[in-house]
Design a protein around this nucleic acid. Structure first.
Length: 262
DNA sequence: ATGGTCGACTCTCGA
C-alpha cells in the first residue's frame, strides 16, 4: 500500500500537479486537504480518465478534504459525528476503509494566534480527535492517520525553533495536545525512518525566499498503528509541487507499506 | 512591530 498526503491549497488550482503526481507515482491512496471547493463544483471530470475513485467533502472557499484511491472505499464517513460537531468538521476529517486498512485524512485547524478563540478550537480539536480514536479505532488494527496536522512536533521540524515558541504550530501547548493524540497508539513513520533528519514539508508563501533559505516546517504527517508501521519500507517528501508552474506551499509526503497485515 | 504572498471571493478572510 502506497499512501500519500498533500495539502493542495485549492484542488482547482493544483489539478495539473495532482494529475501529474498520480501518473508518475501511482499511489494506492492520495489524501488531499484544503480542496477549497463545494461539492457541486468539484472538478470530477478531470479524474475520469485516471482510473482513480475520488471521495470528497468540501465547502465554499475554505477547508475541504478528498481521497483518491484505485478502488472505491469500503466505507466512508466525515466529521466526528459527536454532539460537539462543528460545521466545518466534515471538511476536516474524512474516514475511509480501503483494502481493510482504516485511513483518516485530517486537515487540522491552523489556529490563527495564541490569543485567538481559533487556537482554543485547535487544542480542542486534538482532544476530540483522540476521543474519536478511542470510540472508533483499535490500535491493534492497521490504521493510518495522515494529513496537514499544523504542528511541527520537534525543534528539528521547524527552522529557527527559538523564534517560533509562540507560534500556533509550535507552541508547547499545541505540541503536547498533538503528542497526547499521537500517544493513543500512532507512530510517525517519517520520524521512525529518519530519527535525525531535518525534512520540511511546507514553506510559507509569505517568505518568498523561504525554500532557498530552507525556512520551512514539517507539519504534514503520516502516522500508523504499530502493526502497520512495522511494515513501512519507504517514506519520502516529494518537492515537485514547489517547482510547478503554480507552485504550492505544501509538498507531497508519501509512504510505502508492505508485508502481511494481521 | 509588521508585513511578506497566495487563493477564493467580495472586499476581506484565512493560511
Amino acid at each position: 500500500m502506497k499512501i500519500a498526503t498533500y495539502n493542495v491549497n485549492s484542488i482547482r488550482k493544483r489539478l495539473p500537479i495532482v494529475l501529474q503526481w498520480l501518473t508518475l507515482n501511482s499511489p494506492d491512496v492520495l489524501c488531499l486537504q484544503e480542496t477549497k471547493v463545494q461539492d457541486p463544483d468539484f472538478p470530477l471530470e478531470a479524474f475520469a480518465n485516471t482510473g482513480y475513485h475520488i471521495t470528497f467533502q468540501g465547502m465554499k472557499s475554505y477547508n475541504g478534504v478528498a481521497i483518491l484511491s484505485r478502488t472505491p472505499p469500503e466505507s466512508v464517513s466525515t466529521g466526528f459525528g459527536d454532539d460537539e460537531e462543528h460545521k466545518d468538521d466534515p471538511m476536516r476529517l474524512m474516514h475511509v476503509v480501503i483494502h481493510g486498512i482504516t485511513i483518516l485524512n485530517t486537515y487540522v485547524p491552523q489556529g490563527a494566534s495564541l490569543d485567538s478563540p481559533k487556537y482554543q478550537y485547535k487544542l480542542d480539536w486534538f482532544r476530540r480527535l483522540m476521543q474519536y480514536f478511542q470510540c472508533h479505532l483499535s490500535r491493534k488494527k492497521p490504521v493510518i492517520w495522515c494529513g496537514d496536522m499544523n504542528v511541527a512536533p520537534e525543534s528539528i521540524d521547524v527552522h529557527h525553533p527559538e523564534k517560533h515558541l509562540k507560534h500556533v504550530c509550535f507552541h508547547e501547548t499545541i505540541r503536547k495536545a498533538y503528542y497526547k493524540t499521537v500517544a493513543w497508539g500512532f507512530i510517525d513513520v517519517f520520524r521512525a525512518h529518519y530519527p535525525k533528519k531535518q525534512q520540511f514539508t511546507f514553506w510559507d508563501y509569505r517568505q518568498p525566499p523561504a525554500l532557498e533559505a530552507n525556512r520551512g516546517w514539517r507539519i504534514d504527517h503520516i502516522l500508523a498503528t504499530p502493526c502497520l508501521a512495522e511494515t513501512c519500507t519507504k517514506v519520502a517528501v516529494d518537492l515537485s509541487p514547489r517547482q510547478a508552474e503554480t507552485p504550492s506551499d505544501h509538498t507531497v509526503l508519501w509512504a510505502q507499506f508492505s508485508g502481511e497485515i494481521k
